[in-house]
């Protein structure tokens, strides 16, 4: 859905995983930007209907880019800088009592 513009300053490539898939993005990207740059549009499902949602405001206001980062849920992907080796997962709807 997004691509790097021509003539962008070069940046180091960082490796990370999204739902187990190995991906790379540029150092300096936020988690949400890294997902968009990899063509990932949906990063969570809503707790109410389970509908897919993706980053909407990119500035910490809308909470649509919530993801699980290194096992911690409800992280705002647009505010967290990407780090090498990050394990990012879809935030799948609401939590269930069995821990699922």
């Amino acid at each position: 859905m997004f691509r790097l513009m021509h003539e962008a300053k070069p940046a180091e490539a960082l490796g990370f995983t999204f739902d187990g898939r190995a991906l790379t993005a540029r150092a300096g990207d936020t988690v949400a930007a890294a997902l968009l740059a990899n063509g990932i549009q949906a990063c969570r499902q809503t707790p109410v209907s389970g509908a897919d949602r993706g980053p909407y405001c990119m500035m910490g206001v809308c909470f649509e880019c919530l993801v699980v980062i290194d096992g911690v849920g409800n992280r705002q992907g647009c505010l967290v800088p990407l780090r090498e080796g990050m394990r990012i997962e879809t935030q799948a709807g609401r939590r269930h009592p069995d821990g699922g």
Binding site: F2, A8, G28, M58
Partner: peptide, 10 residues
């Protein structure tokens, strides 16, 4: 923001 911060375009 995606453009300014990450050089991304749709």
């Amino acid at each position: 923001i995606a453009l300014k911060a990450s050089g991304l375009v749709p």
